[in-house]
Simulated scan of single mutants.
Amino acid sequence: MTQTIEREFKTLITKAQFSQIQKEHPEALTVRQTNHYFELPGHQLRQQGLGLRIRQFAETAEQTLKIPTHSVQRTLTEITEALSLETAKQLIEQQTIQSDGPIMTYFNEQALNWPTLSVWGYSTTERTIINEPQGQLMLDQTRYPDQFIDYELEFEVSDFQMAQPFFEQLVQRYSIKPTPVINKVQRASHHQAH
């Protein structure tokens, strides 16, 4: 289990910008991940700003709860628990989460009725990870069930003030027009196949 504070800059980018940045970093690692998103009746998680997912990689999986903090900048507390692929598949099929651990503890402390969880959607992301001295730069190409694809630039950092000049130079270098980004969970809700 890990609990981290996620601080990030992010913006949607064009396919051309995505390709250009990726091409200039041939050493970067690319991973494929599929996110299955959970919700409670009446959108209780969304109403509290919470995000709950199970993420599957090629050989491992994890369940993550994102909890907003009261900060001006984009900051979240992320609780992540490792899962085996087999366990993740079973949980997704049963539309529930691992029954012990800190995420379940949080649900119980907040009196959230976890037995009523359901999986409402998914998305698949090809993520290119570029390590920079100021933080971790990620290029995401995300495909949704309705076949819509979007491209996102995300920069996870530990120090906003130290990383901001780098991010601003990056945006300028690639002629990126920073746009407010709704998170992948919200974007996924618009692009499920009907």
Results as ranks from 00 to 15, higher is better:
1 M>P: 11
1 M>D: 06
4 T>D: 13
7 R>L: 08
9 F>S: 07
11 T>K: 06
12 L>C: 01
15 K>L: 09
16 A>I: 11
17 Q>G: 06
18 F>L: 05
26 P>I: 12
27 E>Y: 13
30 T>N: 02
30 T>D: 05
33 Q>V: 08
33 Q>F: 10
35 N>I: 12
36 H>M: 07
37 Y>H: 03
39 E>L: 08
42 G>P: 14
42 G>W: 13
46 R>I: 11
50 L>N: 06
51 G>H: 05
54 I>L: 06
55 R>M: 13
55 R>F: 15
56 Q>A: 06
60 T>I: 08
63 Q>N: 09
67 I>R: 00
69 T>G: 08
69 T>S: 00
73 Q>N: 12
73 Q>I: 04
77 T>I: 15
78 E>N: 01
82 A>N: 04
83 L>H: 01
83 L>E: 02
83 L>P: 10
90 Q>N: 12
90 Q>G: 00
93 E>L: 15
95 Q>N: 08
96 T>I: 05
97 I>Y: 02
97 I>M: 07
98 Q>S: 12
98 Q>G: 11
99 S>I: 07
101 G>Q: 02
103 I>A: 05
104 M>Q: 03
104 M>E: 05
105 T>E: 12
107 F>P: 05
107 F>H: 03
109 E>G: 04
110 Q>I: 04
111 A>T: 14
114 W>M: 01
116 T>P: 06
118 S>W: 11
118 S>E: 11
119 V>L: 04
119 V>P: 12
120 W>Q: 05
122 Y>V: 09
124 T>V: 05
127 R>E: 10
130 I>Q: 07
130 I>V: 07
132 E>D: 03
133 P>R: 05
133 P>K: 08
135 G>E: 00
135 G>A: 01
136 Q>V: 12
136 Q>F: 10
137 L>E: 00
142 T>N: 02
146 D>H: 02
151 Y>D: 10
152 E>V: 00
152 E>I: 03
155 F>C: 01
156 E>V: 05
162 M>N: 09
166 F>N: 03
167 F>A: 00
168 E>S: 13
172 Q>H: 07
172 Q>P: 03
173 R>E: 07
175 S>G: 06
180 P>I: 03
182 I>N: 06
184 K>N: 01
186 Q>M: 13
193 A>S: 12
193 A>H: 14
